[in-house]
Write a protein that binds this DNA or RNA. Structure first.
Lengths: 208, 208
DNA sequence: TAGATTGTTAATCGATTAACAATC
DNA sequence: TAGATTGTTAATCGATTAACAATC
């Protein structure tokens, strides 16, 4: 185990490892090699070993990795062994769809509050959550200990929502709006706008 | 202009440039420098100039880039000046939400067919689209000239759906299912599973 | 023991950034 | 002309991959 800083590329692969390890676990597979993982996830086995070695010695030479042990370790690294409360702003179609993924998120990570400022959304029930007005955001976030915010509002509203999240103590933001938001350097933002994904796919189409 | 192969990182930035250029255009801004773009998009100006220079000489020394001209050029590069028909499989909450983004996609790219195999979804109307059964997928895709497929089915169904897309002639896939799908090398896949995004964000939270 | 597989170092590859001549 | 900004080369930085001793 080294004490280098870990690159974002490494951190983004960890959830992918975890996802597949959970699948192996459901199938009662006890042990997995970096070779197996690489085949299944289309990654170089050396890269997988190196990624994991940043955080500790989790494998056994000649054997591979114990599936359950590695799941436990990756969950610790990603902090998924803690409760992590998430808030979502923007109860439109996309926001409502994401709220239904709480079952998938499991692992103690959960969307626990939804906000929107349009009068026809406030008070609406989404699963077991009630849409709250924006003016309650700061208080709710503090009371519920919310640490991650999801933005599913139109582009024009994304920056003000991000500002409000940060004022309220949110530490990380997942932004679905098609715009680059500005945040202080200690706040982590991931962008998840699917229109840019689709547009970059178009580049790879064969010329007509 | 060089004839190197263009890295995926470059291609993924082009839609981000395009998005901001469109915004400038709406504000009637005529000209923009790589400096301006870099400030707004949190990118190094040299990187932006280099990205664009892979495709041609679009700027004027001492002046910058003409906004309208650059929009036109990037749309050509990304093939967004052609009609690109998109199909979506999986008419659950997320799939239905994505169908509502047709307005956003504009630029000739449009979701023109939706498929699902569950009996309570087939026949359902989503905007002006009727959910079709999977058995009609190959025919519909060929008839509509669909070239990109979006997968919003559960993980267990993603691989069979991808296989069916490819059999039907789809050239690129945007996969929202939380699983790595296997495709032939000439098919481009982008993964857009938001749960892995959220899980990697958790890593950056301050220790409790 | 023989075969397998890790953890880690060194080599390679690729992407980002700095610097600057060219020129509007 | 003077100031600004591009396109491009060279330098830097960082990430991926190969190779292999250690060891289960």
């Amino acid at each position: 185990m080294k004490t280098e800083k870990i690159s974002e590329a490494v951190v983004r692969r960890l959830p992918v490892y975890l996802r597949f390890l959970n699948e192996l676990n459901r199938k009662n597979v006890q042990t997995v090699s970096s070779q197996d993982l690489g085949n299944k996830l289309d990654l170089n086995p050396a890269q997988i070993r190196k990624d994991l070695a940043y955080f500790g010695e989790f494998g056994k030479k000649g054997i591979g990795y114990d599936v359950n042990y590695l799941i436990e370790k990756i969950r610790q690294i990603l902090k998924l062994d803690q409760n992590i409360a998430v808030a979502l702003v923007g109860a439109g179609n996309l926001g409502r769809a994401l709220c239904n993924y709480n079952v998938y998120l499991k692992d103690n990570m959960k969307i626990v509050a939804v906000f929107d400022d349009s009068p026809d959304k406030v008070g609406m029930q989404i699963n077991n959550l009630t849409v709250q007005p924006m003016k309650d955001l700061a208080r709710s976030i503090r009371e519920a200990g919310i640490r991650i915010g999801i933005i599913t509002v139109p582009a024009s509203e994304a920056q003000p929502v991000a500002d409000e999240f940060i004022r309220s103590g949110v530490e990380a933001v997942l932004n679905f709006a098609p715009v680059i938001i500005k945040v202080p350097p200690e706040i982590r933002v991931h962008n998840a706008d699917f229109t840019t994904d689709l547009q970059s796919l178009a580049y790879y189409l064969e010329d007509a």
